[in-house]
Structure formats: C-alpha cells, structure tokens
C-alpha cells in the first residue's frame, strides 16, 4: 500500500512521463485553444462539431487530448498531495478518488467522441 501512497518508490517513471506528456500537451492544448476557444468562427454548432468529429484527425486529436490531458492533470494532482504527510487512510482515499474519477471521466469523454 505504501508503494502506491507515496512513502516508497522513487516516483521516477511518473516524473519522466509528466515531462513527456507535458511537451505533448504544450502542442495539443495550444492548438486546441487557438482553433476552438479563440476562434468562434471555427464553428460551435452541433453540425459543425459533428463534421469535425467525423474527421479522423480531429477524432484522434481529441482522444489523445482526453487521455494525455487527464493523465497529466491527475498525475500532477497526485504529485501535489504526495508532498504532504498524510495518514495512510487519507492518502489511499485521495488516491482512490483520483484514479476512479479519472477513469470515469475518461470513459465519459471517450464515449462522447466515439458516439459519432
């Protein structure tokens, strides 16, 4: 249990992956923001979104974003909690909430993308 709640294990794989996913997200998030949020003309109607959803490129783009973004965000969140000395029960609860909510919202997002 301690291995997963922070007192054992170097955390090195998570650290390296946090940087690799971070570099990937630098490209993905900024592209997403410029195309979608900064530019209302790119189309926010149901029809326009559906047209994008049928484009394999944007489908893969969104799947990558959800997967890598959630992992990076939740690994980072866990990294913040790891810095505090917590009782094992508290630590395990937070870890559980992070993992379970992460899986739940990943399924929710992937389901939305793959519905079309």
């Amino acid at each position: 249990m301690y291995k997963h709640t922070g007192s054992r294990g170097s955390g090195a794989p998570g650290w390296v992956l946090q940087r690799i996913t971070g570099i990937l997200l630098f490209v993905v998030v900024l592209t997403h923001f410029f195309v979608m949020h900064a530019n209302p003309a790119s189309g926010h109607t149901y029809a326009a979104v559906l047209a994008r959803m049928h484009d394999p490129f944007w489908k893969m783009f969104d799947l990558t974003f959800i997967t890598v973004g959630l992992w990076h965000g939740l690994n980072g969140t866990w990294g913040v909690f790891r810095d505090y000395k917590m009782k094992p029960a508290v630590s395990l609860t937070i870890y559980g909430v992070i993992i379970l909510s992460g899986i739940a919202f990943w399924v929710l997002g992937v389901n939305t993308i793959l519905s079309f």
Binding site: T77, F105, L108, G109, N111, T112
Partner: peptide, 15 residues
Amino acid sequence: TAYIYVHIYALTSLT
C-alpha cells in the same frame, strides 16, 4: 485539471 473535468462533462450534451 478541474477545468478538463467540467469540459468533458459539458460536452457530453453532444450525445
């Protein structure tokens, strides 16, 4: 991270 949760939830209305 909080925002990506809201974002994923909000866009489920597509279905």
